[in-house]
Amino acid sequence: MNAMIEQFVQTLAAGLTAGSLYGLTCVGLAMIFGIMRVINFAQGDFMMVGMYLAVWIAARLGGVHVFGAAAPFIAAILVAPVLFMAGSLLHRLLISRTTGLRAVGLSGEGHQAQLILTLGVALILQNGALILMGSSPVSIVSKLSSRAWEIPLLIDEDSTLFLNQARTISALVSIGVAFLLFRLIRQTGIGKSLRAAADNPEAATYVGIDVTRAHRIAFGLGAAIAGVAGALMVLSTPAQPFVGTDFIIIMYAGVVLGGIGSITGAFWGGMVIGVVQQLSTLVLPLQLQNAMVFLVFVLILLFRPQGLFGRTVERA
């Protein structure tokens, strides 16, 4: 009995740490979708870029032996401004041609063009990475990855919870970043103007908001979040050019689960996926963990079609 409890707690902890990271990736996607209504297929590949970038930065930082164990996390934070600028630039050059007020008159509000465009960006990033970085996986080697905190469970003498240090710190950083973002969106002037631009781009223009600029900020933020999540992920998942495709499905599931348009919901959607994925390994073979995720996904949507945090009541 005690052994079972120990295993359950251990698996739950693994689910919560994985879920925090998934949650952050979902927040990035929800940011872009929620504010621009753009379905970004390249989101997983922004994550991949963040992974490679973090490996590169961490190697430079590790070389000087100043930052030691903190190097991967400092690298993750440094990835944010780089991806923010890259995302904003991509928006300025390409994405903005298919979004905003320019898209209002287009059929389907320009969604087809946006899909093809972001899919194209995804392919270029994947194959570009294949050319530049090769196909062999790389990761950050940190001594934290092989160290664990041992927490006694107090149910008997030798039951202990092992928390991998790298994963736990990654999870805490993810939660911190997601929290800062919620504060930014909910409470700052910039966040409010982003939400206004999301609610109604035309009316936002009439109160003096530059909707194109708001979208550029949202796209940059979304890319930056994907990058940071990737940088944190690379401590436990090696980077390779097509790693993004493994995660994009999970990201979409998380966003839909949380309720489309809700950034807070996206985080919890990702969290649910992480927890379900890990807990399913208790009763099912490892290969079926994603099957379980989608089973729960379908069940939740059957009973709550609007998602966990979706709004149903809204007058026109």
Partner: peptide
Amino acid sequence: RVFASLSVLENLEMG
């Protein structure tokens, strides 16, 4: 075309 997900006060602040 009010900003539906913002509060009344936030709508006025945007203005």
